[in-house]
Design a protein around this nucleic acid. Structure first.
Lengths: 250, 250
DNA sequence: TCCACAATCAATCATAATCGTTCATAAGCA
DNA sequence: TGCTTATGAACGATTATGATTGATTGTGGA
């Protein structure tokens, strides 16, 4: 069997079965173990597959994390940097609103020992906040399964019982003319209200949100201090006149 | 079986069943207990699951953590029997209040496809309800870390926006003279209020709660229909005159 | 509540499988 | 022939596995 033939054969088998074992290939091709091993090394080099102990798998599917980690680990380090900076804006004893979202989630470890009262509409945040021993109120309301955020009239009514020193919002896009935006109008309403109940509002975003426009408008840029990281100079130049931009690592 | 295959298999099974037992995996994969144990350790390290005594659960739903292994599996079968019976008391389209607690938690699988609107003050219940595709409102409020229950004025105010056809309460004790009791006065207040907003209230309890008296009184026995199982004849005799007792398996 | 028993656990060790490397041979090509 | 490339076998090194042990934890009864 020719080298190229073997390569094609291996890839075809892999495509069909998702995983192949080396022993399996040795038997079915008649080639020696060393040869198969070399084949796999070559094919891995050209990104056609990924080697694992005892065989190979299709690339990129090694860890079955399509949604959860994929999204929440995207720009994770950047989000943590942003979160650490944002936490420095909180005073001892403040009342804080934490929006549902992955960026605000990263704030939580930095809020320990600040004697805060935190209100959030994010299901995932409550658990993490409690683990840190932070006094936490959840707004409640109708839960959106996808994001774990609570929205609706119940949530709005619940929010109106509170006033905040600081309000942290996650956003899906910010744009000089269109302001802060997010895909879900219901969530936008919550963010809007929470901000209006706070003395100071910070919008947290990684660089991928720059100049993005999503469906629902939350507010104009100048209504909140934007905290970003790794933003390009061009994007920054267009924004600075509209609002105060805190660039974490300029 | 390749290591990665096993890992994928474990996660797939976990996703499907919410929990996996080690013994179960040993049998179905043919691998040794040590290997499965190592797999679980690895997968836990990469946040793909969370280990509990005897098996593993999906991560992030660990609010039952102290209880999933000890408290909530205590009398589990009994609780499921009670829950199954209780679910037969719910009509299509009802609005239902589900108290926070391990017994009411078991109700959830039986409530699917009943087109209900469910309100709860239990954090753990929200997640389970959402997985079943049931429209769910969480009251919100201050969260008690130990039980995952929301309590306080926020919760009370939120509750007052609703009316229920049926109200299911978990209790820690019932007694002929002292009525239904629970350790936490705040939780008692919630239970009390929820019941007063409902046309019909059911108190769910396993046999260990018979003639127990806890700190905070919720209400007299005759204010709710008690649903128990495996109750002794003596205990039952003393109660029947006070309230309607449904004994699941007499 | 306390105690005994069973289940489960983490740690350890020996074994088996797999790995990368090296070297020698064979095949293809000028 | 001389050169390159592919192959297979052999080696010690690494990794995964399975069995064992003593410790820990949960369970059920007194």
């Amino acid at each position: 069997m020719l080298t190229n033939e073997r390569h094609a054969y291996i890839l075809a088998l892999l495509e069909e079965k998702q995983t192949v074992k080396i022993q399996e290939l040795v038997e079915s091709t008649g080639a020696s173990e060393s040869t198969i091993r070399r084949d796999l090394t070559d094919l891995e080099q050209s990104q056609k597959l990924e080697r694992v102990f005892g065989g190979a798998i299709l690339p990129g599917r090694n860890l079955m994390e399509p949604s959860i980690s994929d999204k929440s680990t995207r720009f994770l380090e950047e989000k943590i940097r942003i979160a650490e900076y944002a936490s420095s804006l909180v005073q001892q004893g403040d009342s804080v609103f934490l929006d549902a979202g992955t960026t605000t989630f990263q704030l939580i470890p930095f809020l320990k020992d600040k004697d805060l009262v935190v209100v959030t509409n994010g299901l995932t945040l409550v658990e993490a906040l409690n683990e840190q021993g932070i006094t936490t109120y959840l707004t409640g309301g109708l839960m959106k399964p996808r994001t774990g955020a609570f929205v609706g009239s119940h949530t709005i009514q619940a929010l109106q019982n509170y006033r905040f020193d600081v309000c942290f919002l996650g956003i899906n896009g910010f744009h000089r003319d269109y302001g802060y935006t997010t895909p879900d109008p219901e969530e936008a309403a919550i963010k809007q209200l929470a901000s209006s109940l706070a003395r100071k509002t910070y919008a947290l975003a990684d660089h991928s949100k720059a100049n993005k426009i999503s469906f629902a408008k939350i507010m104009d840029l100048d209504r909140a201090t934007l905290i970003v990281d790794e933003i390009s100079k061009e994007a920054n130049a267009g924004l600075e006149k509209k609002t105060i931009v805190k660039v974490v690592t300029p």
